[in-house]
Each structure stands twice: as structure tokens, then as C-alpha cells.
Simulated assay, not measured.
Amino acid sequence: MPLVRISLMQTTAHRAQEIGRCVYDAMRETIGIPEGDNFQVINHCGVGELVYDPTFLGIERTNEFMIIEITLGRGRETAVKQALFARITELLEARCQVRPDDVMIGLNEVGLDDMSLGQGRAQFVENPPARLLSLSDNGSS
């Protein structure tokens, strides 16, 4: 169910797809999304369209800076989120030579009733996967 939005400076289609693949692979490894649950929007930004502070909090950002926003189901523990952040940056560095300082990640957590995967229906309300039910049993949705 995650919806990923990646905003980065202009690059090749191949590189953009590989960056997206790194994010998808990291989500598969750390938060257990199922095979094929891959929905991404990759925005190529021109000069002045991706605004960031190059040294905020002592992090040295370059013109390779990117923002990764992930909307996903609510309920994951902090340690799992931290593992996701770490794995995304590890894969981006290893496969795409993206410096970890150039990767900003934001998670937007939503409930099962906050997403439609098509047909104007909230599929996870109608038929929630067992994995999502266990998250909602813990007081989350």
C-alpha cells in the first residue's frame, strides 16, 4: 500500500528508475511490503524547484539532494522506521552513488480507511490483509 513520491534534480530515466527500485527494495526488506506493491511518482525538478538548505543540522547537501516521501499504513515501531531510513540510504549509496547526506525521507502514516487502490473503494477496509490487521490490533490502523 505504500505510495512513494521522489523529488530530485533532473536525471536520466534509467537512474530515476534505479533510485525508485532502491526505495522499493528497502521497503520489501524492512517493512515487509508484498511483491508488486510498488506505486511511485518520480518528480524531476529544474533549477529553483527543489528548495533545501545545504547545511541545515550540519548535513552537507549537494545538488544531488532528493526528497523521498512515503505514505504508508500507520503502526510501525520507531526501530522499524529507522531501519527503513538506513536501508534506503544504504541501497542508494551502493547502487546509485547517492551520498547519504543528500537523502531526506519523510513518512506519512495513514489509517486503513485513508487509501483507495482503485475503483473508488477502500480495499483495506473491505478486506484487510492479515499483516495490517495485526497492526490495527495493537491500537494502530
Score class of each variant (00 low, 15 high):
residue 82 Q to T: 04
residue 98 V to L: 15
residue 12 T to G: 04
residue 123 Q to V: 03
residue 130 A to S: 06
residue 71 T to M: 12
residue 131 R to Y: 06
residue 81 K to Q: 02
residue 78 T to L: 13
residue 26 A to S: 11
residue 106 G to M: 12
residue 79 A to F: 01
residue 47 V to M: 11
residue 118 G to D: 08
residue 109 E to S: 02
residue 32 G to A: 01
residue 24 Y to K: 02
residue 139 G to W: 14
residue 73 G to N: 14
residue 116 S to A: 10
residue 85 F to E: 07
residue 112 L to C: 07
residue 10 Q to N: 02
residue 50 L to W: 03
residue 69 E to P: 00
residue 70 I to T: 11
residue 101 D to C: 11
residue 13 A to D: 04
residue 70 I to D: 00
residue 72 L to E: 06
residue 137 D to F: 08
residue 95 R to F: 11
residue 25 D to I: 07
residue 86 A to Q: 15
residue 13 A to K: 00
residue 109 E to C: 05
residue 98 V to K: 13
residue 128 P to M: 06
residue 19 I to L: 11
residue 12 T to M: 00
residue 97 Q to G: 10
residue 82 Q to W: 04
residue 26 A to L: 01
residue 17 Q to N: 14
residue 97 Q to R: 14
residue 59 I to M: 02
residue 36 G to Q: 01
residue 101 D to Q: 08
residue 126 E to R: 10
residue 42 I to T: 05
residue 110 V to P: 07
residue 37 D to R: 01
residue 77 E to Y: 03
residue 82 Q to V: 03
residue 26 A to W: 06
residue 9 M to S: 12
residue 61 R to P: 06
residue 117 L to M: 10
residue 98 V to A: 08
residue 53 D to H: 14
residue 130 A to F: 03
residue 131 R to I: 10
residue 72 L to T: 00
residue 25 D to H: 13
residue 25 D to Y: 08
residue 25 D to C: 12
residue 61 R to K: 15
residue 53 D to P: 02
residue 21 R to F: 03
residue 119 Q to V: 04
residue 51 V to R: 02
